[in-house]
Structures are given as C-alpha cells and as structure tokens.
Amino acid sequence: MTRRPRGSRFLRILLLVLLSAGAGWGETKPSGADNAAVRRKEFALPRKHDSGLSREAKRGRALYEYYCALCHGKQGDADGFNATNLKTPPTRHTDPILMGTLSDAQVQRVIKEGGQALGRSPQMPPWGGVLKSQDLADLTAFIRTLAVPAKK
C-alpha cells in the first residue's frame, strides 16, 4: 500500500474549486444578454396590494380621483391640474390643522351643497345631485386618510 503524499487531498479540493470557478468564468452569457442577465432566477409569490385603506375609503378614493382630484390633487395637496385656474385655491386636504377644524358632517355638507353652504367659494360645486349619501360617507372616509393629525 503506497502512502499518499501529504496534501494530496488539499490539492484535489483546490483543483476542484478552481475547475468549477473556471466553468463559471467561461459560461456563455445568456442570449439577449443586455437585459436577460438582470432577471432574477427565483420563484416569486404574488404580493398583496394592500393600500391600508378601509373598504369605504377605497371606494372613496375612486370617487375622489374621478371628481375631486382635478382641483384638489390626487393626494389632496390642492395641486390638481385645474387648481391654478381657480380664483380661490382649493382646500388642501392634507392640512391637518385645517382639516381638524371640520367635522365629518361639515365635510359631507360642503361636498353635498357646495362651498357656498359654509360661506366659502361657489367654485366648489354642489355634488348632491351626483353623489348619494353612501358616496359622501366613502369620500369623507378617504379624505380623512389624507391628513396626518398634527402631533402636540
């Protein structure tokens, strides 16, 4: 029985490592390489689209984006595309101090009867002919999510 020279095992492992590294090195790029290379080779699971909104607020958001965002802005920042055309700028729904002074009933009343109902600008039209009472509640629920209450 011949005695193996010392370190032969180490050398063999080294050889293996080098070989496999070499194989990796010489690997041809996947075809269409420019963008295929960045794609991940992983099994993906569907992710929840959680907006964190209640069902009412979700319905309210759809209405808000359809009717209100044109002036009030999609996020309620008073920056809708029509905002600069108004003589009185639209209410900023992200303003926690201002929104804090309005009760839900007042918010709903302005939407329903227009700005004049609370002695404000007639540029805010009355939506009572379009929106039902559930719509008003949904809208209010969504508008309430826009302003983060000020911390004291």
């Binding site: 044109l70 002036c71 595309f81 029509n82 055309n85 108004l86 600008s121 007639p122 540029q123 039209p125």
Partner: peptide, 19 residues
C-alpha cells in the same frame, strides 16, 4: 360668473378652468 362660478371649470376667452 357669480352665483355658480362656472368659470371654475370652463374657459371663455382664455379665462377660467380647463376641466
């Protein structure tokens, strides 16, 4: 112009809203 502020959304002679 006054009671209903229609010009908030409609333009006349380049003045008013664009909705």
């Amino acid at each position: 112009f006054e009671k209903y502020a229609c010009d908030a959304c409609h333009q006349i002679n380049l003045k008013g809203g664009t909705i």
